[in-house]
Amino acid sequence: MTQPTQHREPHDRGVNQRLNWLRAGVLGANDGIVSTAALVVGVAGATSATAAIFTAGMAGLVGGAVSMALGEYVSVSSQRDTERALIEKERRELRDMPAAELEELSELYRERGLSERTARAVAEELTAHDALSAHLEAELGIDQDDLVSPWQAALSSAVSFTIGALLPLLAILLPPEPWRIPVTFVAVLAALAATGAVSAHLGDAPKLRAALRLVIGGALALTATLLLGTLLGTTGIG
């Protein structure tokens, strides 16, 4: 009799980090879509000049991508510095008081439900194999071989923001003038629904609810900037 196939969850190193980069990419693309769309729709509400719309859109794209990259670089650099400091602190403690650290590791496994004897045996075996890795994983949830990269985070954010920003920019520039704003609304809201569904899928959350949140928020942002741009255009300020 054929045995049923067992589906195994991935346990390779770096899987959590890859999922985090994917989530960050989806969020970066979403930011690019919304901020650039709001900018070009607002300008289009004030003027029909293609050059003005293109200039505003490109300025928003470049400025947003650079801002996202810098923000991610600073944030991830701070996280990496903190992780390195914790690793060095744990290394010193293992060198200076190995007995206390062994007892601490045993206690951590007892708190997870192991018996005192089993917890002690596990702690001793892991310590003999790689004491630092064992303590980092059990105490801090850190993998010293899988630390986040600030440059990777910055590049990922810049690229995802740029890709997201290109959609509303193309949607507002390619159609004939009377169709610019309607086409942009449809394209942007469809893209937001897609990114919301993908983000929810990655987090095992309800897809429809996440998509609706983004669509409603995006529609409000576009409507507000369109009204503002139209008001400024009709009053001669734009």
Results as ranks from 00 to 15, higher is better:
L39F: 03
H135C: 00
S67A: 11
I216S: 06
P182Y: 07
T36N: 07
S115N: 12
V122N: 03
D96C: 09
E90H: 13
P176V: 03
S75E: 05
A224P: 12
V198S: 15
P10R: 10
R80L: 00
P98L: 00
L147M: 03
T195W: 01
L192M: 08
N30A: 02
I33D: 04
L86W: 14
G32K: 00
V159F: 08
F161N: 13
W151I: 14
R117Y: 13
L166T: 03
T235D: 13
L192Q: 06
G218P: 03
P168T: 00
P4D: 00
A210S: 13
T50G: 08
T230N: 12
A224M: 07
M68L: 10
H11P: 03
Q152K: 15
V62G: 04
L208Q: 14
L22W: 08
Q144N: 06
R84H: 14
S78L: 07
E103M: 03
V40W: 07
L140N: 13
W21C: 15
M97S: 15
A44S: 09
V26G: 13
N30T: 09
E139G: 11
N30V: 00
L174Q: 09
D130S: 07
A52I: 15
L61A: 04
A123F: 05
R112L: 15
Q6L: 10
K207V: 14
H7V: 08
G218W: 03
S77E: 03
A134I: 00
M68K: 11
A187T: 04
E116H: 12
L126E: 01
L108G: 06
L105V: 04
E111P: 05
A52T: 06
I53A: 09
E9F: 12
R8K: 14
T50K: 13
E124R: 06
V41A: 09
G141T: 04
D146T: 07
A197P: 06
T82S: 06
E125K: 04
S106K: 12
A46M: 14
R91L: 14
L231Q: 08
W151T: 07
Y109S: 04
A210L: 12
E101A: 00
V198Y: 06
I237W: 12
L27H: 08
A131M: 02
F161R: 07
A224R: 15
A224F: 10
R23Y: 11
L147C: 09
I142V: 13
A205H: 08
A131C: 05
A128H: 04
G57E: 04
A191Q: 01
A38K: 14
D96G: 12
S156H: 05
S199V: 04
G63D: 09
D96P: 07
D81L: 05
L70K: 06
T36R: 11
T82F: 13
L169P: 06
G32V: 01
R120Q: 09
R117P: 11
W179F: 12
H129D: 15
L39W: 01
A52R: 10
E90W: 06
L222M: 10
F161V: 02
A171H: 02
R84P: 14
G164M: 00
E137K: 13
T82P: 12
S157H: 03
I163F: 15
A138W: 02
R180W: 07
Q79D: 07
Y109F: 08
I33R: 01
A123I: 01
G233A: 12
S156W: 02
T55N: 08
A37G: 07
E83S: 11
H201E: 06
W179I: 00
L192H: 05
S35Y: 00
A134R: 01
H7F: 11
L189I: 05
E139N: 10
L231A: 08
H7Y: 11
